[in-house]
């Protein structure tokens, strides 16, 4: 089944001098359900713009964005670069904020909170306020919050880029475990080629502005993977050269 379809999507922003700034240029791709796809692009290309279009936070200037099968509405959610938690609510209340906003029936709240906090390894921390947690733990809460509404598609916008490398490695490996249990479709945006290679089944490489897809690579490495696997390192070198205009 197809989870996300982009057909000739373009995005322009009007500028103060009257001209149009072309950010996205004729982007087309499809992703299958339960797939883990990374979008790798240089800083400042239209990666976040692309995610906003898919999340429905913004509309394309041309082309179509189709989420799921046309006859069934599909739930899309977002994990941001920063945790974006409500500091004045406990971890549990942060999850409930999302559940209630998404109209999940109240009897299900407690079991979902339990389940998804334990999935990210934070069962003990439901009653803590975010400010007493470390950066990595906060990002785990953000992942649990996104998972808890049980969406079909999760969009992740460089969620580990502000963490130190050791914490980021831990979270990447945990994310893969969770994804294998939950089987959601994940679209993961990053500027880190090794991260893209390690996490994904497939990597789309984007060019600089005006952004288009320059390379579409599958990652034929068995799971579980090691981040230091020579095949992955080799692949990430190829991805980097594709980023720089090779192919």
């Amino acid at each position: 089944m197809t989870a996300i379809t982009l057909d000739e999507v373009t995005k322009q922003y009007p500028q103060t001098d009257g001209t149009q700034l072309e950010v996205l240029s004729h982007i087309s791709f499809e992703t299958e359900t339960h797939d883990f796809v990374s979008i790798l692009g240089p800083s400042g290309c239209g990666k976040s713009t692309l995610l906003n279009l898919i999340a429905g936070l913004d509309t394309p200037s041309g082309g179509d964005v189709i989420i799921g099968d046309t006859d069934r509405p599909t739930d899309v959610t977002f994990v941001f670069q920063e945790p974006r938690l409500l500091d004045w609510r406990t971890v549990r209340e942060n999850l409930i904020f999302a559940l209630k906003s998404k109209d999940v029936p109240k009897p299900e709240w407690e079991s979902r909170v339990q389940r998804y906090l334990s999935l990210v390894g934070l069962s003990e921390f439901g009653d803590e306020y975010p400010q007493s947690l470390s950066g990595g733990m906060k990002q785990r809460v953000a992942i649990a919050r996104a998972m808890a509404i049980e969406p079909d598609v999760i969009l992740m916008d460089e969620p580990f880029s502000s963490l130190d490398e050791i914490t980021a490695r831990e979270l990447r490996s945990d994310l893969i475990d969770i994804w294998q249990q939950e089987e959601q479709t994940i679209l993961f945006v990053t500027h880190n080629a090794q991260e893209a290679a390690y996490l994904s089944n497939r990597v789309l490489v984007l060019s600089d502005r005006p952004t288009t897809v320059v390379s579409d690579r599958s990652v034929p490495v068995e799971r579980p993977r090691s981040p230091d696997d020579p095949d992955l390192l080799h692949l990430s070198e190829q991805l980097i050269s594709a980023l720089h205009g090779g192919s």
């Binding site: 999340a55 936070l57 959610t77 977002f78 941001f80 920063e82 974006r84 409500l86 904020f97 999302a98 906003s101 998404k102 509404i149």
Partner: peptide, 9 residues
Amino acid sequence: DLIKMGTVF
């Protein structure tokens, strides 16, 4: 950013 988070959910 929190407003945007609220919008997403």
